[in-house]
């Protein structure tokens, strides 16, 4: 019962934050709504027995990725942008309509297909303990892990080449 209450509160926060991102006029507020959404998801991860992921979610997403976003928004002075008009006038109403259609479709599919999943069972002993995740990560998924590290290196070099190519480094976004 307590879990259900917690789920409903967090889900509402996550949805409101998502809608806030969708309709925020100011990019700084949009970023903050997304941060709120990520924090809510971290709480949901905790209720799903994934404390490790919840902490990684906060550290990487809320703590690093979104700070980078805010940094770029403030650096470029790109807080507000006139959204109306533009070359394709009917794009925005159509976008909302399509979004609504997608929502209804997904909801319908889940109602038909996923309601049979039933309740979540209590997790087995030390489910998702950090040590267990580490065992799996460094044994069965070692190759993806190594590829991810190479990917990060490539991304770092790419970002440096793109932003730092000019000699007059304008307080690079690193």
């Amino acid at each position: 019962m307590a879990l259900m209450t917690l789920f409903i509160i967090t889900a509402v926060i996550a949805l409101v934050a998502g809608l806030g991102l969708l309709f925020a006029r100011n990019a700084v507020y949009a970023a903050l709504f997304l941060v709120l959404n990520m924090l809510a998801l971290a709480v949901l991860f905790l209720t799903l027995g994934a404390p490790f992921l919840a902490m990684v979610q906060i550290t990487v997403y809320a703590g690093a990725v979104m700070v980078l976003f805010l940094f770029v928004v403030m650096l470029l002075g790109a807080e507000t942008l006139k959204e109306e008009g533009g070359p394709i006038a009917w794009q925005r109403p159509l976008a909302l309509l399509l979004g609504l259609v997608l929502t209804v479709l997904l909801a319908a599919v889940i109602f038909i297909e996923a309601t049979g999943l039933g309740n979540i069972l209590p997790p087995p002993e030390d489910y998702a303990a950090p040590s267990r995740l580490a065992m799996l990560l460094f044994q069965r998924y070692l190759l993806p892990f190594e590829i991810a590290s190479v990917l990060l290196l490539v991304a770092m070099i790419a970002a440096l080449v793109m932003v730092g190519s000019k000699k007059k480094t304008s307080s690079s976004s690193r």
Binding site: P51, M55, V56, I58, A62, G63, A64, V67
Partner: peptide, 19 residues
């Protein structure tokens, strides 16, 4: 069992107030 990660997570979001 993720105490240290908790500390790192909280430390990483403490930037927001200042920014």
């Amino acid at each position: 069992n993720v105490g240290i990660l908790y500390i790192m997570a909280i430390a990483s979001i403490s930037v927001y107030g200042v920014v």
